[in-house]
Design a protein around this nucleic acid. Structure first.
Length: 289
DNA sequence: AGCTACTCCTGGTAGC
DNA sequence: TGCTACCAGGAGTAGC
């Protein structure tokens, strides 16, 4: 699933091909992708120039202008199976293309998506759309001290919390599982029961996993994620738990366990990530009923 | 408010 | 071989 490292890879690869270019035509094959008819979508973007390409969480943003006047932005999300590439005129994007945007240098920006969950929408005020997102895990706001405090204020299980984009923005199923393993934390551990030292380890683990995955241009373990250059990522070779149920833990050899947490396949090592004891009720006394 | 369950989609796969 | 049933899952939303 495209998460932060995959979207970062997409942004870096398409940036030099689209910044400075002006859209000359737009075609929409699936209306839900754009959230607007082809006519409405085209009227928002045709004639606009791309002034920047950037990432926020798992979103990619193409900031637009008409002349020197800001003209909103294209806000994209790959969800599960979305892909983006910029190709020469006449390139066949295959049967699953959803949006095509012609550029003034003859190339075409394609948004391709087998399962149709992805989005590429024009927004007049893109910052408002992104306002509810939590801190960027590779940004200055995501400090060890912040994570220690943030975890202490939440009683829910770690895994669903780390997947919550309003808590921290950009992590998905793969990188949460990998981060929790590197930090030695059970996915069902209550957030407020994580000791400070473990929370600090989790902070480092998240950053290390994301940086390593960006270095490898993301993870490709099925037919879906490919970089805009058409290549698979390489981080799947460094998975320690994700998609490795039954295989030995790289740390201790214990077979990796798979459970379902919040409707998500969840992979962990029962030895390296022991489940904490149940929360006691009241103020430390044993529950009496 | 915080958490869980459901929904959107369809290619791939398991089972018969 | 061909059919059916089920699985994967990010994020928005409904509901408790």
């Amino acid at each position: 699933m495209p998460e932060l490292p995959e979207v970062e890879t997409v942004v870096r690869m398409i940036r030099p091909k689209v910044v400075g270019r002006t859209f000359t035509a737009a075609r929409v094959a699936w209306k839900r992708t754009t959230g607007a008819s082809e006519r409405a979508f085209a009227s928002s973007v045709v004639g606009a120039r791309v002034v920047a390409v950037r990432r926020r969480a798992k979103y990619f943003v193409l900031d637009l202008a008409r002349g020197e006047t800001p003209a909103g932005a294209l806000l994209g999300h790959l969800r599960m199976t979305g892909r983006v590439h910029v190709e020469h005129a006449g390139y066949d994007p295959g049967p699953y293309w959803k949006v095509a945007l012609d550029l003034d240098d003859g190339a075409t920006f394609h948004f391709v998506d087998v399962r149709k969950f992805g989005r590429l929408e024009w927004k007049r005020d893109v910052e408002r759309e992104l306002a509810d997102l939590g801190p960027e895990p590779l940004g200055d706001g995501f400090t060890s001290a912040w994570l220690v405090r943030a975890l202490a204020s939440r009683r829910g299980a770690l895994k669903p919390l780390l997947l919550d984009q309003t808590f921290v923005a950009g992590l998905g199923n793969i990188y949460v599982d990998e981060s929790l393993h590197r930090a030695g934390l059970h996915p069902l551990a209550p957030a407020d029961r994580v000791p400070r030292e473990r929370a600090e380890r989790l902070h480092s683990a998240i950053r290390e996993v994301l940086l390593a995955a960006i270095e490898r241009e993301g993870s490709s373990f099925d037919v879906f994620y490919r970089t805009p250059e058409g290549q698979p990522g390489g981080f799947q070779d460094e998975f320690r738990v994700y998609d490795r149920a039954g295989e030995p833990c790289t740390t201790c050899g214990t077979p990796i366990t798979r459970i379902v947490v919040g409707q998500r396949g969840t992979h962990f090592c029962t030895s390296c990530q022991p489940r904490p004891r149940r929360r006691s009720s009241g103020t430390g006394k044993r529950a009496t009923g």
